[in-house]
Design a binder for these strands. Structure first.
Length: 729
DNA sequence: GTTCTAGAAC
DNA sequence: GTTCTAGAAC
């Protein structure tokens, strides 16, 4: 079949226009974050990418360089750009990839140049690595690789090289490639700092004063130096300033400026409209007081993140009121500012990147109506409507609902908005539903609550991003932030909100969490709610509850797996498991531990034959509500019936309470273990001998005379009667 | 989390 | 034949 010539020409023309595929060759030691880099770029990019990963190319297992080359060639033929995710540690390793696609395909290098020590510690600690490179083996591989390391040079055939030496550099680089549209190209040359010799100790260089942070040893200026003529600082003034600066630039330069601004200044930022003051006619003086009060409360809690109050008009009274009051209170202008602009066009028109925007929603969470709500729903496309409907049907005043924005939404691609937080404030307008008339006591209370919910929602997103940032190497974490607050938390619908009698019903009707989340959020079956119900209403469960305190409830495990097995439940809402634990929970964990110790001591005093207790958490618990197991080490119980029972207390799946507290204190997060440990072979917890089945194992442990392994004897992981006499009552 | 049970392992 | 595991249902 012969195609008409015009069609052929058309196709050819199309192809020429679209073939801007590039090959990005990553370079870095195992544990340097190459795969994470790829994940982030591919998630935010509108350009088609293929990740060629040697660790998984062989049907999920590690393959050969040849397989990588062939797979990359196919991807290029399909018009995809390629991320070469392998170590590519020296020139020899890279040379064949530089030939891919011939001269017309640009080759870029992204160098993740972190100290070997850091890479080793990351790759040793990780579990579930795609290429199974973890533990001691990883350390050996990294050490072997270090001497062979050879940084890439433009002369090898690279059009562009990005050197990254810290997380900030990596983030910038992710932004540069993540924002690269299908037809865009990037400036050539070397970007970022590179050490001429990474083996040189930085300390010595500093001592000799030979290192200047901004010097590039002959390489070209960094992207920020090159592309940003002046710092864009929306924090200092209204948006006009930024526009004026940008207006001198050509269209292309303007675009680059935005990219650079996004890349260099990607601090989490929430843009929010004034709630309730437009259509809901809330008194502006009162509203501005509440905004400033709540902003002041939250700027201290959100780290580096920023809050920006946005209104369309220069003449906005609420904006000027808030600005004046914020100045009077000396609120840090880097953390909080007011901004004039369209909340749906902040990046594209004003160069202000806000990754989260708040919507002054209506109670039905529906598009339309006018004002900010109409504008946001219209700018975000049907994606926002669908994503919102998946999470809730309606919203009651004072509440907020965090909705992760699908990457296909125009608001995501054009403005870089990753989340929309719907907020419903109080209504003072008699023409609208639920009018409070002039009840400003209730109205102010609701408006405060609305801002609290909004800022808490934002702060969870920030926290979640940080967590991803730190743990992605270990967990391949692809968690999306999504938190709801108060009555809306994790439930769909709000009809029951005003009916207290149904509160228990609501406890068990948890809707499966957002589908995008993978490892750390999970769906709890109705049977998994029991501990939650007990923690919330211990007075209704006196048969099992041993002790009720302000922050914890102590109870007998309903199916004890040893002679003594109790649970210490946290009473805080929103703490389903260790995965939800953050640094601010450390004092709660310590008090759970202390209460657990006290009970262990009591049991040891009552029955000396119990000898030892262990206190710890399951990495992935079956029951909702954070609970600490306090369990005697005899494991003499008819309820201990299967492999999962045994392994959940006798493999690294069980994390000692002392280690959880230590890691939280030192690293700020807790590393969870894979549930693959649950299917491991059965081994005696003392002598470590293996046994074919549970009955044989139980027969063995009932008579094993060995002492506990040394790791358990350290750091008070095992509790015996000698350890904790000072807790004795 | 448990219970139930089919079928694998012995 | 009995014992034991593992997956589904709750």
């Amino acid at each position: 079949m012969k195609f008409p010539e015009y069609l052929f020409n058309f196709c050819e023309g199309e192809e020429k226009q679209e073939t801007k595929a590039i090959v990005v060759i990553l370079m870095g030691l195992p544990g340097s974050g190459k795969s994470t880099f790829c994940d982030h770029v591919m998630r935010s990019s509108s350009r088609p990418w293929a990740r060629i990963c040697q660790d998984t190319i062989n049907n999920g297992k590690s393959g050969t360089k040849l397989q990588c080359l062939s797979s990359a060639t196919s991807a290029l033929k399909e018009g995809k750009s390629v991320l070469v995710d392998r170590c590519n540690i020296n020139k020899e390793q890279r040379v064949d990839f530089l030939k891919l696609g011939g001269a017309k395909v640009e080759k870029h290098a992204v160098v993740l140049d972190f100290p070997a020590k850091l890479c080793i510690s990351r790759s040793v600690k990780r579990t579930g690595h795609e290429g199974n490179l973890q533990g001691g083996k990883a350390a050996a591989v990294v050490n072997q690789m270090v001497p062979k390391k050879e940084l890439p040079k433009l002369a090898e055939g690279f059009a562009r090289i990005n050197f990254c030496q810290d997380e900030k550099d990596v983030k910038e680089s992710i932004n540069v490639y993540g924002l690269l549209g299908p037809l865009d190209s990037l400036p050539s040359g070397c970007f970022g700092n590179k050490n001429s010799d990474t083996k040189t100790q930085l300390g010595i260089m500093k001592f000799l004063k030979k290192v200047e942070p901004s010097s590039n040893a002959g390489s070209e200026p960094t992207i920020s130096q090159k592309l940003i003529p002046n710092e864009i600082s929306p924090g200092k003034d209204s948006g006009l300033q930024g526009t004026e600066k940008a207006s001198d630039l050509t269209g292309v330069a303007h675009k680059k400026l935005e990219e650079a601004a996004a890349a260099s200044d990607d601090i989490p930022t929430l843009a929010f409209p004034s709630i309730s003051t437009a259509d809901f006619q809330f008194n502006l003086e009162k509203a501005s007081d509440i905004i400033v009060e709540k902003v002041e409360e939250f700027v201290g809690k959100i780290g580096k993140a920023k809050l920006v109050l946005v209104d369309l008009s220069h003449k906005s009274k609420i904006l000027s009121l808030v600005k004046t009051k914020a100045e009077q209170k000396n609120i840090d202008t880097h953390k909080f500012s007011t901004f004039v602009g369209d909340i749906t066009r902040l990046r594209s028109l004003k160069g202000l990147h806000c990754n989260v925007i708040a919507n002054a929603a209506n109670w039905r969470l529906k598009p339309g109506g006018g004002g900010v709500n109409a504008a946001i729903f219209s700018a975000a496309g049907s994606e926002l409507d669908i994503a919102t409907k998946e999470k809730a049907d309606c919203l009651s005043p004072g509440n907020a609902l965090v909705v992760p924005l699908p990457s296909s939404s125009p608001l995501f691609t054009r403005e870089g908005v990753t989340h929309v937080i719907h907020v419903l404030g109080p209504n003072m307008n008699p023409q609208r539903p639920d009018c409070l008339k002039d009840d400003y006591v209730h109205g102010s209370e609701l408006l405060r609550k609305a801002y609290t919910s909004l800022f808490e929602g934002f702060s969870s997103i920030v926290r979640s991003n940080i967590e991803v940032h730190y743990t992605n190497d270990d967990h391949k974490l692809k968690r999306e932030a999504a938190y709801e607050f108060d009555e809306n938390k994790k439930y769909k619908g709000c009809e029951q909100d005003t009916q207290p009698g149904l509160s228990d019903f609501r406890d068990v009707r948890k809707i499966p969490d957002e589908k995008v989340s993978l490892e750390t959020t999970k769906t709890w079956g109705s049977w998994a709610q029991a501990l939650y119900n007990i923690a919330m209403h211990p007075e209704n469960h006196t048969k099992v509850v041993l002790e009720t305190l302000d922050d914890v409830v102590v109870m007998n495990d309903a199916y004890p797996k040893a002679k003594r097995h109790i649970l210490v439940l946290a009473r805080a809402k929103g703490l389903d498991s260790v995965a939800d634990v953050h640094i601010e929970h450390i004092s709660l964990l310590k008090s759970m531990h202390d209460v657990g110790l006290k009970w262990a001591q009591k049991f040891l005093n009552e029955d000396k034959s119990l000898s030892f207790f262990r206190l710890g958490y399951h990495s992935v618990p079956s029951m909702r509500q954070l609970h600490l197991h306090v369990i005697s080490q005899d494991f003499d119980s008819g309820h201990l019936k299967n492999k999962k029972h045994w392994n959940s207390f006798n493999t690294p799946f069980f994390i000692d309470s002392v280690d959880v507290i230590k890691e939280l204190d030192e690293v700020g997060k807790v590393t969870l273990k894979n549930d693959k440990f649950l299917s491991m072979e059965l081994r005696c917890h003392k002598c470590k001998s293996a046994h074919p089945n549970i009955p044989r194992l139980k027969a063995h442990i009932s008579s094993c005379q060995a002492s506990f392994p040394t790791d358990l004897l350290q750091n008070s992981r095992l509790v015996s009667s000698e350890d904790i006499t000072y807790f004795c009552e």
